[in-house]
Amino acid sequence: MAQAVETRARLCAAHGWSEDAVELVPVLASGDKVLDRPLSEIGGKALWTKELDQWLGEGRIDLSVHSAKDVETIRPDAFHFPAFLPRADRRDCLVGAASIAAIPEGAVVGTSAPRRAAQLLNLRPDCKVVTFRGNVATRLAKLQAGEADVTFLAAAGLERLGQSAVGVPLEQDEWIPAAAQGVIAIECRADDATTTALLAAIDHAATRVELEAERALLAELGGTCHSPVAVLCAPADGALVMRAALFSPDGAERIEGTASFAPGDHAGVKALAADLLARATPAIAAHFRKAG
């Protein structure tokens, strides 16, 4: 809802509308209904989008607001993304310890994200990972109740909820975030020219080129919700520099690569994906469809 409120504010500012010109319609996603199992076991990222897709397809709503990192790489042709809002802090925050190194020996770490679990175990194989799902308040309550010693939350989500003081941001040279992390994606029907034009007014071009490159990498890798992959794409001297790491689920194996390319030119992204897959060990390759 915080993301929807921000979207409404930007639309109203761009078009000179009053706030009541845009109606917010709450939709309870399947991903919020089942909290005791990892998403990868119950349907993956589609659990965040299927109710919104249904309502959008039926014309009950004109646009959907998503956390971009929770949207499947391949989307139905009936929808498209006319707008991505300016990217917020893309880092993960560690809650319960001052750093990865400061996590107590043998600590229980709560997360349901394969990337976070594998990346943690790669750095701290002594830790034990347990499933931890729910919104920010739910996960903080579980941590307080002692269900885990530490957990991870997205810095952007905390910022949007006015809780930036929670946790310690993990610097990107040590801890690579998820593809599309920190981005709000706005989707509408592909044949809805009116809504598409209205949303185009709030599209952030610099964020779009980063996001499209990151999603292109995921598509080339053929990953799924089970695939432990971390991606960071950022501007540098007029180009984009992408760093990506693939892991085995237990964190024991890791490969990493980088690429530099012009914004919008995904040849470098495809080359990076091909290189990573060519170097992937069997334990890593098994989680990426295009490997082998």
Rank of each mutant, 00 (worst) to 15 (best):
V5E: 14
E6T: 05
T7G: 05
T7M: 01
R8C: 09
R10W: 07
C12M: 05
A14Q: 03
A14W: 00
G16S: 03
S18H: 10
V22H: 05
E23A: 15
L24M: 10
P26E: 11
G31M: 00
G31I: 10
D32Q: 09
D32Y: 08
D36L: 09
R37G: 05
R37T: 11
P38I: 12
S40G: 08
I42E: 08
I42F: 07
K45V: 03
A46Q: 06
W48C: 12
E51M: 11
L52F: 01
L52C: 04
D53P: 05
Q54I: 11
W55N: 03
L56Y: 03
G57K: 07
E58P: 00
E58D: 14
G59T: 02
R60G: 00
A68C: 06
V71Y: 10
V71T: 13
E72A: 15
E72F: 13
I74R: 14
I74N: 12
D77W: 13
F84V: 03
P86G: 10
A88Q: 05
D92W: 15
D92Y: 15
L94R: 06
V95H: 06
V95Y: 08
G96R: 07
I100K: 02
A101V: 07
T111A: 11
S112Y: 09
S112F: 12
S112D: 15
Q119D: 13
L120D: 14
L121V: 00
R124V: 03
D126S: 13
D126F: 02
C127A: 15
V129E: 00
V129Q: 01
G134A: 03
R139D: 06
Q144W: 01
G146Y: 10
G146F: 11
A148G: 06
F152A: 09
F152Y: 11
L153Q: 06
A154C: 04
A154Q: 04
L161V: 02
G162P: 00
G167W: 04
I176Q: 01
A178H: 07
A178T: 12
A178L: 14
V183K: 02
I184Y: 04
A185D: 01
E187M: 12
C188W: 04
R189W: 08
A190V: 03
A193C: 07
A193S: 13
T195R: 10
T195K: 12
A197Q: 13
L198S: 06
L198R: 10
A201N: 03
H204F: 11
A205C: 00
E210A: 06
E210T: 13
E212G: 02
E212M: 14
E214R: 15
R215M: 15
L218D: 09
E220G: 01
H226Y: 13
P228E: 07
A230M: 04
A236G: 00
G238T: 05
A245Y: 01
L246R: 01
D250R: 09
G251M: 12
E253C: 08
I255P: 15
E256G: 09
E256C: 15
G257N: 09
S260F: 04
A262L: 11
D265K: 14
V269E: 03
K270L: 10
K270H: 13
A273K: 07
A274E: 08
L277V: 02
A280L: 09
A280Y: 04
A280K: 04
T281N: 07
A283T: 12
A285L: 15
H287D: 14
K290D: 06
